[in-house]
Computed example of a mutant assay.
Amino acid sequence: MGDTLGESRYIGIMSGTSLDGVDAVLVSFDSSGPSLIQTHFLPYDDILRTQLLALNDAGHDELHRAALLSNRLSRLYADAVAALLAKSEVDSREIVAIGCHGQTVRHCPQMENAYSVQLGNAALLAELTGITVVADFRSRDIAAGGQGAPLVPAFHRMMFRDQRVCRAIVNIGGIANITYLPPEGEVVGFDCGPGNMLMDAWCMRHKGSTYDHDGAWAGSGHVIPGLLEALLAFPFFALPPPKSTGREMFSIDWLGLYLNGDEAPEDVQATLLRLTVETIASSLLQHSPGVEEVYLCGGGVHNGQLVAELNAILPGKKIKPTDALGVNTDWMEAFAFAWLAKQTIEKAPGNLPAVTGATGSRILGAIYLA
């Protein structure tokens, strides 16, 4: 199964903090390394997005609602797998396993009894697809004293480390995170703050749109210096790695604590974009000494205003999308979870203790056999 002349095939599924939908990829692993065979995106509808957002806060009957949404997500994941296989003309029996991250609705890594919750019924997904599923990637790292995130830096190290050049990979999804890849020594990786999440929420509130296309609305406004200064003073930004975060910390309600109510909406949007840019740039300069090349991935790559401001604040750095390294920016995380599933199946570690803070390397994930 999934092994032709040393080749093995895995599927990676990612639905991230931006709540835009399901990314599914088919990946081939052979002696020459991993390669992306096919991709498929399945968007969330507005009702599902609203229901998932509601679970980020305590509410009535939330256990029941979470269970129902886990089942619904798994059916959506199964639909994405079916479409992916049909597009690539590959039989499900050729797939070793699906690596499914699930939909994060709570991420509380700093608590004494830390935990992270990703919705998705992996048993149902295995039943619907007839394919072995690897899920629940974060729990083992958290049990070992880590934060359970970010997990993708281990994949970045395998794919993109160069023996001559200091590189950084910056993923700008709902949350922004950085992987620093020096030619030798330990990899550094951490969440540096909000990526698109606050901008998307503010855009939805004032424009009725799920995102600010190309950053045009932010570009029409002006940064509010006092607001930016207050936001940048939030303690999370000064914390050293390892660190990770989510909607629990950077919500629209959190933003509301800093507003007086008479700001022009476009000026707030411009300020939120600058917050993302400055926290990425300061994190790179502080924790990625000597970085020469910065490669961007995630939805933020499509925000022209954001990329332009990042280039302006980091003069002399080579800033390009990860396409230049051979991996399309939109599929990086799904690709990573195909690889993480392979690590689990092969009983190999999937975390980087220096990144998550775990006490050691661990085999991640729970396996649901087909």
Results as ranks from 00 to 15, higher is better:
Met197Ala: 11
Met197Gln: 06
Met197Pro: 05
Leu198Arg: 02
Leu198Trp: 05
Leu198His: 01
Leu198Gly: 02
Met199Arg: 01
Met199Asp: 01
Asp200Tyr: 00
Ala201Lys: 10
Ala201His: 06
Trp202Lys: 07
Trp202Ala: 11
Cys203Phe: 04
Cys203Pro: 07
Cys203Ala: 12
Met204Pro: 01
Met204Ser: 12
Met204Gln: 09
Arg205Leu: 15
Arg205His: 11
Arg205Gln: 14
Arg205Tyr: 03
Arg205Asn: 10
Arg205Ile: 01
His206Asn: 10
His206Pro: 08
Lys207Cys: 08
Lys207Ile: 03
Lys207Pro: 02
Lys207Trp: 00
Gly208His: 01
Ser209Tyr: 00
Thr210Ala: 05
Thr210Lys: 02
Thr210Arg: 06
Tyr211Trp: 08
Tyr211Ile: 05
Tyr211Met: 03
Asp212Gly: 04
Asp212Trp: 02
Asp212Pro: 09
Asp214Met: 03
Asp214Lys: 01
Asp214Gln: 07
Ala216Arg: 04
Ala216Trp: 07
Trp217Arg: 04
Trp217Met: 08
Trp217Asn: 02
Trp217Tyr: 13
Ala218Val: 06
Gly219Leu: 12
Gly219Thr: 03
Gly219Ala: 15
Gly221Val: 11
Gly221Glu: 12
Gly221Tyr: 07
Gly221Cys: 15
His222Cys: 15
His222Val: 14
Val223Pro: 12
Val223Ile: 11
Val223Ser: 08
Val223Tyr: 04
Ile224Cys: 09
Ile224Ser: 12
Ile224Lys: 04
Pro225Cys: 03
Pro225Asp: 02
Pro225Met: 02
Gly226Cys: 14
Leu227Met: 15
Leu227Phe: 14
Leu228Ile: 06
Leu228Tyr: 01
Leu228Met: 07
Leu228Asn: 04
Leu228Asp: 02
Leu228His: 02
Glu229Arg: 13
Glu229Gln: 11
Glu229Pro: 13
Ala230Met: 13
Leu231Glu: 06
Leu231Phe: 13
Leu232Tyr: 04
Leu232Pro: 06
Leu232Val: 08
Ala233Glu: 13
Ala233Cys: 13
Phe234Thr: 09
Phe234Asn: 06
Pro235Trp: 12
